[in-house]
Structures are given as C-alpha cells and as structure tokens.
Simulated scan of single mutants.
Amino acid sequence: MHLSWLYRNVALEFGFEEFHLYLRPLQFECTDQKVRVQQRPFCITEILEDDSCVDRLIPSHLPLSIQELDENQIRFSFSSEEAVIHLMNRQSIKNLQVALACQVTQKNALTSAVKLARLCLWAESDSSSAEREDKDVTCNSGSGSHTGGLQEQYKSFHSKPSTGTSTKKRVMGAFVSIQLEKVGLCDEMLNSFVKKKQAVGGS
C-alpha cells in the first residue's frame, strides 16, 4: 500500500492522474476475443495529445493484482481458522501461489517506476542547478562591460528557443503507466484463453 501511495504522488508530480495505477478487472468467461491487441504508447508523452487509450477507472479500494486478471474465480480468506483450513488443498494452494506471483510482479513494477521517476527528477534538478551556476559565473565574469554582457545574454536567449516545454516533456517521458504496461499483455492473455476455450468447445 505504501508503494501505491508513492506511485500516486509521483504520478501527480509528473502531471498524470492516479488511474495509471489501475487496470479494469476482467471476467474472462464473459469476455470476447480482442480483435486488436492494444499496444502501449512508444512514449508516455504521446497520450498528452490523445488519452483515449487510457481507462480512467479509480476503484474505491486498492485491489490485489490477481483481481485484475480473475475477479471472481480466485477467492481466499484468512479471517477464521475454518477459512484457513479450507485453503489447505492442492488447488487452493496453487491459487495462492498465482496470487502471490502477481502481487510480487506488481510490487516490482511499482518499485521500478517510482525509482526511475525519482532518479530522473533528481537528475533534472541537479542539471538545472548546474546550469544556473554556469550562468551566474558568466554574468559575473562579464560585469566589466555591462552593455556587452547584456548583448551576449540577449543573443544567447534568442539564439536558443525556450526549452521549458521540451524539458518538461523529457522529464514526463520517464513516467511509467502501470496500466498501459499491463493492458496489452492482458489482451494477449485474454485472446489465448478465448482460443483455448473455443478449441475445447469445438473438439
């Protein structure tokens, strides 16, 4: 839960919304084959122009990762001794292993996304500080000729277009949408399930 909180904060800091953390749960038994598997954008900044590929679902609670893949079939509870005993069979243990593997994968994805984002923000901040220091040194060294210094600053400013927007986009490009990373793989898994189901039904 703490990692999810960190990810939400990073998303907001980068100018994105919380829904990038979530993937809409599927009921494979009731879902048709996807004609076209959704591909994630080459770069996250592509969705700044058109975000129609993003699902804006924000659930009321933080679900387990397995619920994104199988909302109804895998159920377990540790609320009582009887519920725990009910899990002590081969199929239930197998389901628990699958749920744990999904949760570990989610944890690793969130950890990587948060670390990458914080590293890029730190690098950009460090780079900006270094540029400011260089400018201060240049201005101080040219203080003997005030007019010449102003002319050099004017030429420097107008010879390079403002990099504020490009810098912001470059930093935003380091953001990882957990939803968009998962959705294409989920579509492929769904299609594989539907094909196997059709093969069994046709045999």
Rank of each mutant, 00 (worst) to 15 (best):
M1I: 08
W5H: 01
Y7T: 11
A11H: 03
L12P: 00
E13M: 07
G15H: 06
L23V: 15
R24D: 02
R24K: 13
V35Q: 15
Q38I: 09
R40V: 08
P41Q: 11
C43I: 14
T45N: 10
I47N: 02
I47G: 05
I47P: 01
L48W: 01
E49M: 08
D50M: 00
R56Y: 11
L57I: 13
I58S: 06
H61D: 08
H61L: 08
L62H: 13
S65E: 15
Q67G: 06
L69Q: 12
L69E: 13
N72R: 10
F76T: 05
S77Q: 04
E81Q: 12
H86V: 04
L87K: 12
M88K: 13
N89T: 05
R90V: 12
R90K: 09
I93T: 06
N95K: 00
V98P: 00
A101C: 09
K107D: 03
L110R: 09
A113H: 00
W122D: 04
A130I: 05
D136R: 14
D136M: 15
V137H: 06
G142R: 05
G142P: 01
G144I: 02
G144L: 14
S145G: 02
L150M: 12
P161L: 05
T163Q: 08
T163N: 05
T165S: 07
K168Q: 06
Q179R: 07
E181I: 00
K182M: 15
G184E: 10
D187N: 13
D187V: 09
K197F: 07
V200T: 15
G201R: 14
G202M: 05
S203T: 11
